[in-house]
Design a binder for these strands. Structure first.
Length: 152
DNA sequence: GCCAACGTTGGC
DNA sequence: GCCAACGTTGGC
């Protein structure tokens, strides 16, 4: 069992959007960063737990929990010239970009804000709270996971 | 292989 | 809307 944090801009796709999807599940498409891709493709397993993080919004922070609902598979939006995430260099025979399906689990009673997370020394090692970090998918240790859950 | 230019992320 | 930080691209 692994733990993760995945960022999404709520104006594009919020945790409420995920909750209202059929089967409460959505392909996490559009990731075009190699580190983030590698986490999904190489390390994520069905059943892993995910902190759902709202970025680039009035109150950035962790808003709830999702689960990894599939193994990794090629991101179809990379093959679609009409899609904003189209990448002509991703060949269907040798796909460059991968994704996993993500399923809604629950919404927190309150947002655990980035500001708050930064105040905890126990979380100082998280990429999330470090200056200049832009990684949209990152691993979370069991210790960090439990610590953050206790803040809710 | 270097590195300047450019585009994107994301907090503020 | 601004801008710092960072990743990628492409000329050389």
């Amino acid at each position: 069992m692994n733990y993760w944090l995945m960022k999404s801009e709520p104006s594009t796709f919020s945790i409420d959007d995920l909750k209202s999807r059929p089967n409460k599940t959505e392909p996490w498409d559009g990731v075009r960063n190699y580190q983030a891709r590698n986490f999904m493709r190489d390390d994520m397993r069905k059943g892993d737990l995910v902190f759902f993080y709202h970025s680039n919004c009035a109150e950035p922070g962790i808003v709830g929990i999702a689960t990894v609902a599939s193994e990794a598979y090629p991101d179809p939006t990379a093959f679609d010239p009409e899609d904003s995430h189209y990448d002509p260099k991703s060949d269907p025979d040798k796909p460059r970009w991968f994704l996993v399906d993500v399923k809604f689990k629950r919404t927190f009673k309150r947002t655990i804000t980035l500001q708050e997370l930064k105040e905890h020394q126990a979380l100082a090692d998280m990429k999330l709270v470090q200056k200049g970090n832009r990684l949209s998918i990152m691993p979370v240790t069991k210790q960090q996971w439990d610590y953050i859950l206790a803040l809710e």
